[in-house]
Structure formats: structure tokens, C-alpha cells
């Protein structure tokens, strides 16, 4: 076992090269709808059982199924009302199960990136060839369903194994969301070279907030707005990134929809916010900042 991921060197928040975003924006704000399918009868994985109850876990399954039947449609309309596009963390099998959801995402000009095939097929214990097979298949699926290239990656249920980031780089993935170590994009060290980490979030992620931290809707909005306000303020010095991961089965419920919209209204009510997708953030940062940040990190005293 490794004692650390080994994908980045220590890089203090102080003294970094200044990050600039398009049109002088202070902050890149991106919403990541996790559009997932959890299988009713998934295969077991030695490191994690997909369901907490014996199969079929009707409660767990149907709660998530709400997202694809009901929540997605509400959530997507709410985002459209505020002019916010999504960067979809996609269980790629959704392209086969619910093509109408993918069609709607494409109409709204959302980015699709891979969150694996199903959120019940973990990368824990996969061989390198197996990981590669999934990535390649997901790339073909996204291309077939949307015409888009596969540029981003979040391992299903954040179940990456030790080698996953290396394989992502070898397979030509542009950015990974598997690490939570920063509020700015960062280079990822892999045996194959270039891979970029873009900030994801478990702090303003609706799953931990609603499911584990027992957060009422109004407090959810408060937390997300506070996260934005701070990163927006810091963005005056150097550009920051706020990722807001959401799940249609949570924010798409009637009790939470208005709180989600309240956050979107708050963010879009500010000047100097870049409403971006993951691909746009990674591409811009790679083009304008990667080399400088890389050189700065390499020049840091040991």
C-alpha cells in the first residue's frame, strides 16, 4: 500500500503564480451534475459492497432512480433559468438506459465526462487493462451519444485504485477530479506525464450535506453561498475555482430545488464570475498557466 497518492508535490497557497481567468474573472464556477445509474443487482467488490442492504436494496435504488425520472428534469430547467451549464459526471451506461436525458444535456450544451460505466462498478481491485478497457469504452460511448470527446474523469464513487491516475494520463484524459487537495487547478504527476487536477468538492457536495450532515435546504444554500463568497474574495488576488457537485435525486426534489436556485442566483448575480465547464477550465489553465505553475513548483525549496 502507498502512504500517499504521490501525484503532487507540496505547493503552499501563499506565493503562487497569479491565475487569471477569461475576461478578468475572479472565479471559475462550475456545476457538476452527477447523472448516475446504480444497478439493482451489481456484482460484488471485495473492498466495497455497492448496497448497504441485501440485494435488492429497494430503498437505496429507488431513491437514486428518482433523479433520472424526476429530479434531473427539474434541476436542468433550474440551471437553464440561470444560464448555468452543467459538466456532467456521467455513469456512461445512462447513454443506453435513458438517452432522453443525454439529449437534453446536449441541447443545453452541457459537457459530458466520465464517472465510469455504472456507479456500482468500482475501480477498487481492477487490473490496469480492466481500467483501460472501461476508459476506452466510456470514450466511445460519450462520442457516440453526444459527439463529444472524453476529457474529464471522476472515478465511480471515488473508488480509484493506486494506478488509476497514471492510466488516465496514458489514455489521454485531460483532467481528473479524484483529488480534493486544492482550490486551483494543479498538475498531476503520473508516469505518463500531463494530467490536470481540477478542484471537485465534498464540502458543497449535496450527498455529504444532505445525506451525512443532515442539512436543511436553507442551510445548504447558506453553506454554498459562503463557500462562493470566500473564493470570490480570494479570486481578487488570483483566480480560484468553485465546483458545485449535485445529484438530481437530491437537489431535484421539491424541498431542495429553491435552495439550489438560490445558490445559482447568488453566484450569477456577481460580476467577474466565469460560468465554465470542466473542459473549459482545464483547457484554459493548461494553455495559460500549466508551464508557469509547474516551473514554480519545481523551483520551490525542498
Amino acid at each position: 500500500m502507498l502512504s500517499e497518492p504521490g501525484h503532487y508535490d507540496y505547493a503552499p497557497y501563499a506565493g503562487r503564480p497569479r491565475i487569471t481567468w477569461p475576461n478578468g474573472a475572479r472565479i471559475a464556477f462550475w456545476v457538476v451534475p452527477n447523472i448516475e445509474h446504480y444497478e439493482l443487482e451489481p456484482p460484488p467488490n471485495a473492498r466495497r459492497m455497492p448496497w448497504t442492504r441485501p440485494i435488492p436494496d429497494v430503498l437505496g435504488y429507488s431513491h437514486r432512480d428518482y433523479g433520472n425520472r424526476v429530479g434531473f428534469w427539474r434541476m436542468a430547467e433550474a440551471m437553464a433559468r440561470h444560464g448555468v451549464r452543467g459538466s456532467v459526471s456521467l455513469s456512461c451506461a445512462v447513454c443506453d438506459h435513458y438517452p432522453e436525458i443525454i439529449e437534453r444535456c446536449c441541447e443545453l450544451e452541457w459537457e459530458l465526462f466520465s464517472h465510469g460505466t455504472y456507479n456500482t462498478r468500482y475501480f477498487y481491485g481492477m487490473s490496469e487493462d480492466q481500467q483501460r478497457e472501461v476508459i476506452r469504452e466510456n470514450r466511445e460511448t460519450i462520442l457516440r451519444a453526444s459527439g463529444q470527446s472524453l476529457d474529464g474523469w471522476l472515478t465511480p464513487a471515488l473508488s480509484n485504485d493506486e494506478t488509476t491516475q497514471h492510466i488516465l494520463a496514458e489514455e489521454g484524459i485531460l483532467y481528473t477530479l479524484d483529488m480534493l487537495h486544492d482550490d486551483q487547478p494543479m498538475p498531476v504527476k503520473t508516469r505518463a506525464g500531463a494530467l490536470i487536477s481540477i478542484p471537485y468538492s465534498l464540502e458543497v457536495n449535496d450527498v455529504p450535506l444532505f445525506g451525512m450532515r443532515n442539512t436543511p435546504p436553507a442551510r445548504y444554500a447558506e453553506i454554498c453561498k459562503a463557500q462562493f463568497d470566500q473564493l470570490y474574495a480570494e479570486g481578487a488576488e488570483s483566480g480560484t475555482v468553485l465546483c458545485m457537485p449535485v445529484h438530481p435525486y437530491l437537489v431535484g426534489t421539491p424541498q431542495r430545488l429553491a435552495a439550489f436556485e438560490e445558490v445559482l442566483a447568488h453566484v450569477t448575480g456577481h460580476e467577474g464570475v466565469w460560468l465554465a465547464t470542466g473542459r473549459e477550465i482545464a483547457t484554459w489553465w493548461k494553455q495559460h498557466h500549466l508551464a508557469e505553475v509547474q516551473a514554480w513548483i519545481e523551483g520551490l525549496p525542498a
Binding site: 456484482p43 451506461a93 443506453d96 438506459h97 438517452p99 481492477m126
Partner: peptide
């Protein structure tokens, strides 16, 4: 690695599984 069937998806189709 995992058994080959870990990457087999018998219910991957239009609609539910």
C-alpha cells in the same frame, strides 16, 4: 484484477435494469 464478469453488463439497455 477483478473477474472478467465485473466488466460485463447484462442489463445495459434502453430503460431500466
Amino acid at each position: 484484477g477483478l473477474p472478467p464478469e465485473y466488466l460485463v453488463y447484462p442489463h445495459r439497455r434502453r430503460g431500466l435494469d
